[in-house]
Design a protein around this nucleic acid. Sequence first.
RNA 1: CGGGAAGUGGCGCAGUCUGGUAGCGCACUACACUGGGGGUGUAGGGGUCGCAGGUUCAAAUCCUGUCUUCCCGACCA
Length: 437
Amino acid sequence: MRLSRYFLPTLKETPSEAQIASHRLMLRAGMVRQGAAGIYSWLPLGLKVLKNIESIVREEQDRAGAIELLMPTIQSADLWIESGRYDDYGKEMLRIEDRHDRKMLFGPTNEELVTDIFRREIKSYKDLPKNLYHIQWKFRDEIRPRFGVMRGREFLMKDAYSFDLDAENAVKSYNAMFVAYLRTFARLGVKAIPMRADTGPIGGDLSHEFIVVADTGESEVFFDKGFEDFDPLSVDSGLGDDLQPVVDQWTSLYAATEEMHDPDAPEAGGADIVKGRGIEVGHIFFFGEKYSKPMKAEVQGPDGKPVPVQMGSYGIGVSRLVGAIIEASHDEHGIIWPEAIAPYKVGLMNLATKDADCTAACDKIYADLRSQGVEVLYDDRNTGAGAKFSDMDLIGLPWQVALGNRGFKNGVVELKNRATGDREEVAIADIAARFAG
RNA sequence: CGGGAAGUGGCGCAGUCUGGUAGCGCACUACACUGGGGGUGUAGGGGUCGCAGGUUCAAAUCCUGUCUUCCCGACCA
């Protein structure tokens, strides 16, 4: 993409409403603009990151055997009345009426709707297990939205729902998601630590939160230093494998959020327990018959008798992750994207746009990179070099390639790694090949 | 929902106390210079000061109401 034709409104100064790093940087980097409190438009650069995260989340869900569908954002109140949550959910649920005065709502989550879909179609234990998920916008009318996309009212969430015949199999489904989550966050380039969690209003018996550790995190967390060394990607997880040992390994070390932390517990006091701040990016629950019973989501068992299915739900805050990753990965100059989700891999800067030869050389690098399938943002604007460097640092692409008169004379570009700051000179003729494969 | 703060051009702000017809920086437009870390000059365009009432000869400024946004707390992906 040529920057001169792109839509990337970067800001030199931070809008006054933004306080924390991710919010400031997302506004300055031209990723989002606010529509109302907690409601954002995603501009092209932000959308690219959101889509990249979404793709990785989707790949890992599919890999773990979950099946994608798409449920609507607007739901009928009927199912929520049936489950009993229409009254329980309170003012956080945005309620509306259609032209026929029917009660509708903007979905804050989808247990009811997915349970209804399940119960209409699945009648036999032979069709289990099932895990259905979608990636869809949710709306929760938060009392106090804040921190940009980290606590928005409208947010993109991946939510999966598992259905099993009995608790034993439901735990297998739970474990599959547990491992899929570890893999997902690792692939996104962030360290997320699973912590035993309070089940909250969704209810249930078994629950873990996945917490990204960042200094600006909103809640206090306590965890064993041993988590630093775990590599989730070393674990292979096919559907049906017994993942209990993996889960056991990951839950053997102490980790707890503030509300679950018990300073008096023997395992909580060790020298390896560190205190930090964290951002919740995922939350998984096993809640058994909580919805299947009142909503009569039953299958016939081998003995021909109807049994309510055992359910779990599994959420990842996709839009929140954009903010959370920035919180965990930025410096005073701007964002530092992990390569897996960066909006572009390479930022190419022509520092001498008035020089026909230099421009031709840049154009060729741009064409070569694109023909190799490398995503490249090409700053071909007629601005000073300083503005280009600053913008490039701000938007945080992993690799910067700069070519100006000085380099052109010597036949070299400057290649900079955004994360490490390391620079090296590479021959103009060789630079495209550096990104091959 | 309790506590606190703020709304003045696209962004950041001054002006409000002490009422007199709106200003600065950045951004934007044109031209010239410049071109390796947000450069320089000249000339421009853009704001009924969140909104509605009120006081006054006169309101960004004083009074009342209202909307919006942000921060702290209790709640949440």
